[in-house]
Nucleic acid binder design. Structure first.
Lengths: 338, 338
DNA sequence: CTGTTAGCGCGTTCAG
DNA sequence: CTGAACGCGCTAACAG
């Protein structure tokens, strides 16, 4: 391995001078800099990151922690979009991205205490995660891409306004004359799902309508689950005329099931998704859905973290809620049978 | 920061003894070990990864390099599946995963020379990538999840048998009576696309049929491109009765376009995709496609790299080709007009 | 502007 | 079985 010493020897200057050149400090005369740089390229010298990090006490590395099975993570388009936003911002700011999966058994804060990372981004932390305590104690700068509780006022987070998003969808369905609207929100173990449900309830309340019974059909974030729940919904004594779904995959599965049962979408049943993933416009019919900008979520999370890492005092928590927007395509139509 | 010294002081033993306990070396008496461990948990000591890496000369970190824009990467389901396989294997083997995006302008080998990683996985390297030279020179253990040239005999790679896969699809279409089969292979700048095209050509040759003209429609790996090319294909003087696509997204776009033009799939036109992404079964009609196990590709790539990193002599290149399989759903049917 | 010295936290000789 | 001293490669005082 070629070290800073070798460069010093070859160039005839001291180690420190070489260090100054490498780190672009200005206290070096142009000629000296020239000569040192020549020696550097001569030897193909590259500074040892470990040694530098040890001394300066930083790694310029951010950890992204996703405490789920990799299967769960990557099955959902959501994660990769957030990751993209994070990766781009970190890359632009000369920070590395260390990816941790399935760290359920290991305190997240460990990677910080072990000096592997300077900060953390936590994606989709489950409710009641026992690691959060250690995180706060360790003093690691961190940002979540989700809320930890439904009315989280402690965590630094960047999240979509799920409640408002579902309200947007509900407003539209109500304006189309639908009154029998069921919701397939996803798994209630997630805060985001509970927040979606809150939007559903808000909409009824706002319109002074009684919330229909048996219309909340909990499930997973998957097409399979959407398929099963749509079947279940239509077999209710009083089947719905519209379904509002927790994500687009659920919506796809629901549409599939409805077709198989002989219903027409949107003539017989209207469907609204959530996320607006790439394929939403290519489903048949193209999916009306509540768009959340997950890429932006990732970007802002990373930017917020970098700010946190620079400033010493995180004073009050930074809590950012991103607006959603309704994308109207062809899976929704006026209600037939009022 | 609590260091090994603090533990030594509190426990009353030397630094070295503490080190032995931390690293689970056997040359320590049980009582001593007990006492040291007590002091460790008392102080909440965690070894400093940077310091250790500096001494032992390894980081236990693998770099995954994707030399494209993040947008391109994450737009395609393929990448995330490979990444999942890689992440799982590395996690199981106590290795960290450092993600590098868009390193077009930086020699990949740099991260190794700078001692940030012990090995590299290169995903989707473009043809003629100038960095490969430096990679080989640096001596970094590495594995590609693709081939660098069509008949690559130098690189360590784990890749799907694209040629064989397209042949499988072609065999099926030919067996259904199709003779006017166009291919929408993707961007020819990628080796994998050229290998797909080779499979297309092999199939005609094997059946002693002349390859039709104007039936190779180059494009991108996207629904948009598939849409445009399907329109183009059907406006040919002698339009095809079947389309074999370079990936599932192209196939989705093509199906969409055909529907818009009033064709029925599969009655009028048969479509075959490639990859078998999650949503392939939920398209309408459900997509017949050539399945490649990208998750397995990632796993094997990571396992191969770990082997390479352990053994000192990489002797001959490790080149692994993974079989594909045809998944027959409902986007294919016998040809109408022979 | 430049060089010398002293650590960063840990693992590893070689004595005991 | 244990401990003191040294060095990994680099940066940060402090001198010159």
């Amino acid at each position: 391995m070629v070290t800073i010493k070798d460069v010093a020897k070859l160039s005839g200057f001291s180690i420190k001078t070489v260090s100054r050149v490498v780190n672009n400090l200005s206290e070096v005369s142009p000629e000296t800099r020239q000569k040192v740089q020549h020696a550097i390229s001569e030897l193909g010298y590259q500074p040892n990151t470990m040694a530098r990090s040890l001394v300066i006490g930083r790694t310029n590395t951010v950890g992204v922690i996703i405490p789920h099975s990799a299967e769960y993570i990557f099955a959902h388009p959501f994660f990769t979009e957030v990751l993209r936003g994070i990766a781009e911002v970190l890359s632009a700011n000369n920070h590395n991205l260390l990816l941790y999966l399935a760290y359920e058994k290991v305190p997240y804060s460990r990677v910080f205490i072990q000096r592997q990372v300077d900060g953390l981004i936590l994606m989709s932390i489950p409710i009641g995660d026992p690691n959060l305590h250690g995180i706060h104690e360790s003093g690691v700068p961190f940002v979540c891409t989700c809320r930890i509780t439904e009315d989280d006022q402690i965590t630094n987070y960047v999240d979509a306004d799920f409640t408002g998003g579902v309200e947007q969808g509900m407003e539209y369905l109500l304006s189309l004359g639908h009154r029998r609207i069921a919701i397939l929100p996803g798994p209630m173990s997630l805060v985001s799902v509970r927040l979606r449900l809150r939007g559903y309830q808000n909409a009824w309340r706002k319109h002074r309508l009684a919330e229909p019974e048996d219309y909340v059909l909990e499930g997973e974030f998957s097409s399979e689950s959407g398929h099963a729940l749509a079947v279940k919904a239509m077999s209710l004594p009083n089947p719905p005329t519209a379904l509002i779904c927790g994500d687009d995959l659920i919506a796809f599965g629901a549409i599939q099931a409805l077709k198989e049962m002989g219903y027409r979408v949107p003539e017989d049943i209207s469907i609204i998704g959530f996320d607006d993933i790439n394929l939403a416009r290519f489903s048949s019919p193209p999916l009306t859905t509540v768009r959340q900008d997950t890429y932006l979520k990732g970007r802002i999370a990373a930017e917020t973290l970098l700010t946190l890492m620079r400033g010493k005092c995180p004073s009050s928590p930074r809590q950012i809620l991103l607006d959603t927007s309704l994308v109207i395509r062809n899976s929704t139509a006026p209600a037939q049978n009022l």
